[in-house]
Design a protein around this nucleic acid. Structure first.
Lengths: 217, 217
DNA sequence: GCCAGTTTGTACCGATCGGTACAAATCCTG
DNA sequence: CAGGATTTGTACCGATCGGTACAAACTGGC
């Protein structure tokens, strides 16, 4: 049984917690409850294939839950706000690390370079598009989108470094305000910042919600 | 000969390139030209001691070259601008990774947690102080300082992910503008953004400037 | 030139690394 | 229940891990 899908989520959590180099097969075996035999049966390519598939799954999740809504939303300003909701839930207010960002910082960036680049390029592009359709000019939209994505990544680093999830939440609130400012359609949202009931408010599930096993017990 | 000081710089570059877990003694030996005998003579505590000392050295460099000037500057607005110059040089426009940030993201955060927290907390505090003394109220200064430090970290991630140093430079320019806005003393600087000849314009040397050996050759 | 003290290279340690082989256990299909 | 295919556990592989032991190679003072 134990399909590849569930295993991939456990795998993602282990890679997040220990990085690519730091994730050993023993750790994976412990976290998934699968022996080496099963692991190599599911992933004949070994650790590299596991990491590739994990990155693909994450990419797919962001594509359907963040990028596509940003691109196709009838109300782009709301889509941007929903994105912040989704990001806050997904990264658990900075307690959960962005695996793609971690890979980008490490030496394994070369191996997974294409996937990493695509993930971030599409995020920035989708967000810039939404910002543009909500009233900004192209240049400003692109610049702001780049800033927002970078700030999200940096907020994860800072929140973890200071061991204070509030840092992440504060950063998201500030970003939300910046994205909404000079954007008449969003004026009402800057006063009521709480989670809206948009289509993204449940984002985060399907990625191993609540499973905290990081390999050691 | 080969004092600890020079060795520490090589070590820092190796740790930056491969992370703590990914840095093996073989890699260190190759990068420093020192055998295990010499390494354990210089650093009896092994890899952990090396990493600790590297982090201390980085911390010290930031303390004297960034934090202290921010705290003690007679013209705080200029000190903030100088900080951006120093950051851009030090991180080589995002080509060089922030080791402290990398550690914060990895599982080794627990081992070096105190050092990591102190590094970022003092950065934010020093910057917030300078912003406050240049005309902002305390709350706004603290919030902006947090945003700036996070944005710097995120810009490194994004620039590396997209393999485009311009992303980092753009982010620094944008941050400079935000730090200067609503700050009359800095108005003249927002038009002339080029490197000023402040006391920090040469920052970055003394940290292994130009030595690009990342362990493999 | 000699000798104490330091610095270095190298062989070696047990543990663990990622990966393979393969037989036992399990599962569907008839 | 039989029989073939799939799934699993486990023993094992060579390589490398971080770390130790220790003797040879240096070094400066006399």
């Amino acid at each position: 049984m134990t399909g590849r899908a569930e295993t991939l989520q456990r795998l993602a959590e282990v890679f997040r917690a220990h990085g690519y180099e730091g994730t050993s097969l023993a750790l994976i075996s412990r976290a998934t409850g699968l022996g080496k035999g099963s692991l190599y049966h599911l992933f004949p390519g070994g650790k590299a294939e596991m990491a590739t598939l994990v990155l693909e799954e994450i990419d797919g999740w962001f594509e359907t839950n963040l990028y596509a809504p940003l691109r196709e939303a009838k109300h782009p300003a709301e889509a941007v706000s929903d994105m912040f909701d989704a990001v806050e839930v997904y990264f658990r207010s900075g307690r959960r690390v962005c695996l793609v960002g971690v890979v980008a910082l490490g030496s394994e960036r070369d191996r997974f370079g294409a996937a990493v680049r695509s993930y971030f390029a599409r995020w920035v592009a989708a967000l810039a598009g939404a910002l543009e359709r909500s009233g900004r000019n192209a240049a400003a939209s692109n610049a702001l989108a780049e800033e927002i994505v970078a700030q999200i990544q940096g907020a994860i680093v800072l929140a973890r470094a200071l061991d204070d999830p509030a840092v992440f939440s504060r950063a998201m609130t500030a970003l939300r305000a910046r994205a909404a400012s000079a954007d008449p359609a969003m004026a009402f949202r800057t006063t009521a910042v709480g989670l809206s009931a948009g289509p993204l408010s449940r984002a985060g599930e399907g990625q191993g919600e609540g499973c905290d096993l990081s390999g050691e017990t």
